[in-house]
């Protein structure tokens, strides 16, 4: 093997090694899902989704759990980092809500469905954002 060839081979090995390192790092430290930019898998009213969960919790869990959903309804409870739609869908936000909406106004929320709270009979969403 010529000196030149040896050099080229070691460059290739080094590059491959660096590539594996970068890919591995990106896999281990991948970003969280961004619910805000994800396309919603379902879009329905607060009453519809909570009805489905109360009638058929297991089926609904399979259908909605961990999915991005858009839910609309009127605000029945409004707090600093959460709000409740139609008394039956609880929406948790990551940051302080800074909105002009008030109790009873119509709103559409996008968030990730984490399940059904049977103590309160409410569907829970987290990482919510306001669609409009």
């Amino acid at each position: 093997m010529t000196k030149n060839k040896k050099f080229r081979v070691s460059i290739i090995i080094l590059a491959a090694f660096a590539l594996i390192l970068i890919l591995g790092y990106n896999y281990v430290y991948q970003d969280h899902r961004n619910i805000e930019t994800e396309q919603a898998a379902f879009s329905l009213s607060a009453d519809e989704i909570s009805d489905e969960f109360s009638k058929n919790p297991e089926e609904s869990e399979k259908k909605y759990l961990n999915k991005t959903v858009e839910v609309y309804g009127h605000i029945t409870e409004l707090n600093d980092i959460d709000l409740t739609l139609n008394d039956n869908v609880y929406c948790g936000f990551n940051t302080s809500l800074n909105i002009s909406h008030s109790i009873d106004s119509e709103i559409k929320i996008k968030g990730r469905c984490i399940g059904y709270d049977d103590l309160l009979e409410q569907v829970k969403l987290d990482q919510c954002t306001i669609v409009n």
Binding site: Y27, V28, Y29, Q30, D31, H32, R33, L65, N66, G92, R112, I114, G115, Y116, D117, D118, L119, K124, D126
Partner: peptide
């Protein structure tokens, strides 16, 4: 009585 929806646990590391 407490109820935790397990999917709601957030880690710093997504993986």
């Amino acid at each position: 009585a407490s109820l935790v929806l397990v999917k709601g646990f957030r880690f710093k590391n997504a993986l």
